[in-house]
Simulated assay, not measured.
Amino acid sequence: MSLIMDSRRAQQVGRLLLDAFRGDGIFGRTFMPAHLLPRGVDRGSRAHLHFVTLTTAINYMRDADALWEASRRTYEAPQTHYLYTPRQVAQTDTDKLIADMKRYRLARKPNKDADIWQTICITLTRHFNGDVYNLLERANFDAPLVLATIRDRRYQFPYLKGPKTGSLWIRVLEDRWQGHHLENLDRVPIPVDVHIAAATVMTGCVRGPFDGPFSKLRDAVTEVWFSACQGSSLYALLFNDPLWHLSRQGCRKTRGFPCEYRNQCPVARHCTETRLVKDGSRASIAA
């Protein structure tokens, strides 16, 4: 069972979604959970950079809205504000760190999340003078080189270095932080999670039948969005936000077909009414 990748269809779907997202939104959604800043933080600042970097690192297996809301509350509270200063976190007792990350529900898995958070802060302190900006600068603000840096075995950036989370971080930096433009964004793959995959399948950009590892489907989704951008000024990361909303508010939410959201959907005419079924590490698509 081979997957069919339709890059021409992806071009059409992608442009419609981008136009909608930049206009009235996808089902009314025009921004992502990471787009809202804590009070007192200026866009493009070091504080903003550390806020999005550390929060993105624990953005796994949890509701994104709840995570970013918890992170904003944690940042704004005087008792926990220090959590976004890598040098201070690197020197903090583990029990205190866990307790403070639990205070406003920043940590969903307290021990694991605290370990991720502190490990990254220790790496930043030891190798980059406690500043994410220094990491970006050392990589010449080149997006693929930034990813290569955090994946270098000399450094420890758990979860942030992952294939999905790393790309997501680059997307947030370019789109929301905007403290410095990143180069070669066209070489960074779209961060494929179940929502990006589901929207890509539902719109027919990748088609089955298929029953196999989700990793194989993820590779196909990555390839089709790369291909959709060839010969244009667009790059695959641009499609992340609208695809995510399309699935989260529509494709994965609908109770049946015809889809109850079709009258609000900007790509309804491309809908194949084909669900992606994901079970652990496996995925299936009907014919």
Rank of each mutant, 00 (worst) to 15 (best):
D193I: 13
Y159W: 10
R255P: 15
D186E: 08
R105F: 08
D63V: 15
V172W: 01
T203G: 00
T125A: 09
N129R: 03
L160V: 14
R8F: 07
F51A: 08
W244V: 13
N263T: 15
R8K: 10
R218G: 03
Y104L: 15
T30L: 02
G250S: 14
L173S: 07
R255G: 11
V201G: 02
G250R: 06
D19K: 08
L173W: 02
N240P: 12
L37R: 08
Q118G: 08
V13S: 00
A148P: 00
D131F: 12
M202Y: 03
L36E: 02
T56N: 06
L97I: 12
R103S: 10
L182W: 05
L135F: 06
T56I: 12
G280W: 00
M61T: 14
A283W: 06
N263S: 07
T222E: 04
F27N: 08
I58L: 01
R262W: 10
M61W: 03
F27V: 13
P144V: 15
D100E: 12
H181G: 09
D279I: 15
G28A: 07
Y133T: 15
A228Y: 00
L124T: 11
I122V: 15
R187C: 12
F21Q: 01
I170S: 05
D100C: 05
V172K: 07
F226T: 12
A197E: 07
P110I: 14
I150K: 01
R103Y: 08
T92Q: 05
R153E: 14
A77E: 05
Y261H: 11
R151W: 14
I26G: 01
V206C: 04
